[in-house]
Structures are given as C-alpha cells and as structure tokens.
Computed example of a mutant assay.
Amino acid sequence: MTHAAHHHGTQHQHEHHDHDTDVQAEILDLDAEVLAEHIASITAWLPVEASARQIVDLGCGTGTGTFALLARFPEAQVTAVDSSADHLRRLQEKARENGLADRVRTVQADLDATWPELGEPDLVWASASLHHMADPDRTLRQVRETLTPGGLFAVVELAAFPRFLPAGAPENRPGLEERLHAAIDRHHAEHLPHRGADWGAKLAAAGFTLEGERTITVEIEHSRSEAVGRYALSSLRRLRGTVADALSADDLAVLDQLLDTDSPGSILRRDDLGVRTERVVWAARRT
C-alpha cells in the first residue's frame, strides 16, 4: 500500500515526491523479482475452493500480488487498488507488456477514506498494506462486506525488514545492520502502530473464520544475483532516508560507503549478500 502525498507548490516538492515514488516502485519491482518463488508458494497455498474469478488486490503497489494471482488463477480478473497513480500506471504498463491488460482493472483510492466500488470478489488479497491503514479493523469489516459469501481474504504481512549482510559485516562496523533494524523498529512503533499486529485475532473479531496461518521464511544466501544487490541497495537507501537522524556519525559514514556505488565498499561489490526475512500469511473466509 502506498500513501502518495499530495504536494502542492514548488517544483522541488514535485521532484522529491516523484523521486520517492520511483524509489518505492523500484523496491517493489525488485521485491517481486527476488522473491517470485516465495510469492508463488503463498498463492499456491491459499485454500480457494473453486478457481477464483473475481479478485481484488488491496494496496497493490506496482503489481507483485496482482501478477502472481493472475498466474495462479488463469480465469480470474483482478481489480488492483492503490492510492498512487504512478504505481497503478506502472502496473497497467506491465499488464499490457505481458498481454494481460484485459484481465486487470485499476482503481485509485484512499482506503482510509471512501470505500470504492469493487464488485463482488471471491478473493481479496492484501499484502503489506493493512498495517498502513488508519483503522484496519474498519478495513477488515469492509472487506468482509465486499466478499461474496464463502469468499476468501488473504492477508500477507512482513515480519521484519529484510536483512542482507552476513554476520560480522561490514568489517569496519560489525552489527551495523542490527542497529539499523533497531532504529527502523523504533520508527515503526511510533508511526505504524499496526505493524506486527495479531491479524488472526483481528480477522476473527471482524467476523471471519480463520482457515489457516503460515509463515514463509525467505533465506537466499550468498547470492551473486544482480537483482539481490540492487534490492539491498534500494532497500538500505530507503532505510537511510527514514532513520539517518537516529544513527551515530560512524554508522552513518559506513552506511554511506555501502550505498555509494562508486566506492570500493559499495554493497554492489559484495559477493556475500543474502535476503533473510519472514512473511506471515493468514487465510480467512467469509462464512
């Protein structure tokens, strides 16, 4: 889910906003590329009784879930919902390039405001979007009202920001990534209070029947994939933008070496990167 800020005024603000959106889009695209197998394993696990025909992807970003769901359910149409017009435009371009334009409808909407008309889906998918909602309990109730009876709601949430560096790295500042994670956790606790919520309990409280919960562990070790390097670079750049003020001068200096693609210490020059993270999936039915 992306919350596109509505900037008015200076060209600088527009450029800053466009840059933020581009950075986020790049991370979402790399996430889809690097974790494609894991996302496919999630869609394969979903306890869907008949092949889904009408699917809604809430907070679709640039389409990671949309395209995984189109592949998993070949007869389905997906309505992709996001607050960012830029992300939706990218998603539409990808759909056209892959010959899927006739199976995708995009809806730009702020899900904290007026709930859009989404038809009668038999599957609703929300990946890494619910924790952004101002009132997720309200969102869960609205999803339940939108689903057809017997329809399934799949909630996917990140257990933590991915880790990329091996233990003891970087050699000149061991533990840097742990300190970055501690800083982002403090930031999220303050600004995203619903991150890490017990979505199983929330789904039950909203009237759903919980059908399953699964933790997907991602462990890609010592990858020489260029995509993993770019994913690490983009993710840590984004992290720096959020937590720079909370870091020591020494940590910030070493982080900047990692992020400097011209530096001998650049993260892109390492051959020991990995991707370690967890995603939790809940499948809940409207009964």
Rank of each mutant, 00 (worst) to 15 (best):
E190N: 03
A126W: 01
E120Y: 00
H87I: 01
T146R: 01
P166W: 03
I267V: 14
A205K: 12
P149V: 13
H194F: 12
D112T: 07
R186D: 14
P264H: 09
R179V: 11
R237T: 10
D86P: 03
D86F: 06
L30E: 08
A5W: 08
D57M: 04
A5P: 04
Q142S: 12
A76S: 14
T287F: 02
R237A: 03
I220Q: 10
T66D: 01
D135I: 09
T139I: 14
L118A: 06
D135T: 14
L35P: 06
L130T: 09
H8R: 12
D272Y: 07
D86C: 01
T287L: 07
A189G: 14
C60P: 08
A85E: 15
G65T: 04
P47Q: 03
V23E: 11
T10V: 05
V104D: 08
A80M: 03
Y231D: 00
E15R: 14
L210E: 08
A227V: 04
E49T: 14
D185A: 15
R240E: 13
A113E: 13
S234F: 02
E211G: 08
A160W: 12
E278H: 12
E75W: 02
A4T: 14
F73H: 15
P136V: 05
P136F: 03
A154H: 02
L69T: 06
L268P: 03
G63S: 06
H8G: 15
M1H: 09
I39W: 13
P162Q: 09
G151C: 09
T106I: 15
D20H: 13
R237H: 09
A227P: 05
D245I: 00
S51Q: 14
H8W: 07
A85P: 11
A25I: 04
H19Q: 14
G212M: 03
I216C: 11
R163K: 07
T64S: 15
F153R: 00
V156K: 10
V228S: 04
H6I: 12
L203S: 07
A201I: 08
G241R: 02
D86M: 01
A4R: 15
E49R: 14
